[in-house]
Design a binder for these strands. Structure first.
Lengths: 145, 145
DNA sequence: CACAATTTGTAGCCTGTGCTACAAGGAAAA
DNA sequence: TTTTCCTTGTAGCACAGGCTACAAATTGTG
């Protein structure tokens, strides 16, 4: 019983998540950029993530193939409904994690960085617990920013 | 200013972390297995992570190359001092994250799963905040396990 | 319009992590 | 001891996500 099936399941989950993390980051970014500037181009994502345009193109291709994005050659990148849904969920998780970190006393700068990494690993149940904590124990419901 | 350097820095950090996450998982596992059974073999890691022995072998090779592990053909896998240090840090982060999730009301099962993913993204500052919260707000200082 | 600059695409290479299939070493049992 | 079984290694494949270099399309300017 030394190598429990539980630990196996945990790690398998972790591994499978990596490409999903990228998907979440990209749909969030596309959503941000579309909201901010009206459209999202490859070059915008290149600047956002600090990677080459080739990397962006290939990841966008995969996300098109998987139904999160849609685009055509030399055209802007758009979210599908599936992508929009994922973006909304990701943003919510991100915001909740960020708020939790702030509530626990983490600085804004570090909270921003850590939330980027943590958000992808927060399950529904954990998210609910975070929200409950923020409601009951962090009565900072308005403009303290 | 729409594509701030800050977001770039965050994502670059996230990307670079992936191989480090694997390193942390492996040194923790090796440490666990050595403690539990006296030695760690490839087959133990194979069972622990639920991946093929080939994958384990290759990752172990990389971690030997990077100075976290040492081994010889058909011999057990051992931690270097560097690996032991990393294992200790990882374990501490893992435990703190796990405890925080429990303190916020997450079930043990889900806390175990989520902590696996979250632990790799918790900075020193955030970890301190977690510890402070656990000390001040979760007076469960002894054997509740 | 024509040229220049920017953007996007494509070819080709690297590393990391996953796999199966097969070969070889080491340990246990007949 | 020999045979069998478990463990480990190696070859070779796939995919994700990094890159540079070069080509093509689009956009902007003279």
């Amino acid at each position: 019983m030394k190598n429990s099936p539980k630990s196996v399941a945990r790690h398998q989950r972790t591994r499978k998540d990596h490409s999903m993390e990228t998907a979440e980051d990209y749909v969030e970014a596309v959503d941000d950029i579309v909201t901010a500037t009206g459209q999202c181009r490859v070059v915008d994502l290149t600047r956002h993530f600090g990677v080459s345009h080739v990397t962006v193109t290939r990841i966008v291709s995969r996300l098109v193939r998987e139904g999160f994005l849609q685009t055509e050659p030399y055209r802007p990148i758009e979210l599908t409904n599936k992508g929009r849904t994922l973006a909304a969920e990701s943003r919510k998780r991100h915001q909740t994690v960020y708020d939790l970190l702030l509530a626990l006393g983490v600085s804004e700068r570090i909270a921003g960085i850590d939330a980027e990494g943590i958000e992808h690993h927060v399950s529904q149940e954990t998210l609910r617990c975070f929200e409950r904590f923020l409601k009951t124990s962090a009565p900072r419901t308005d403009g303290s920013t």
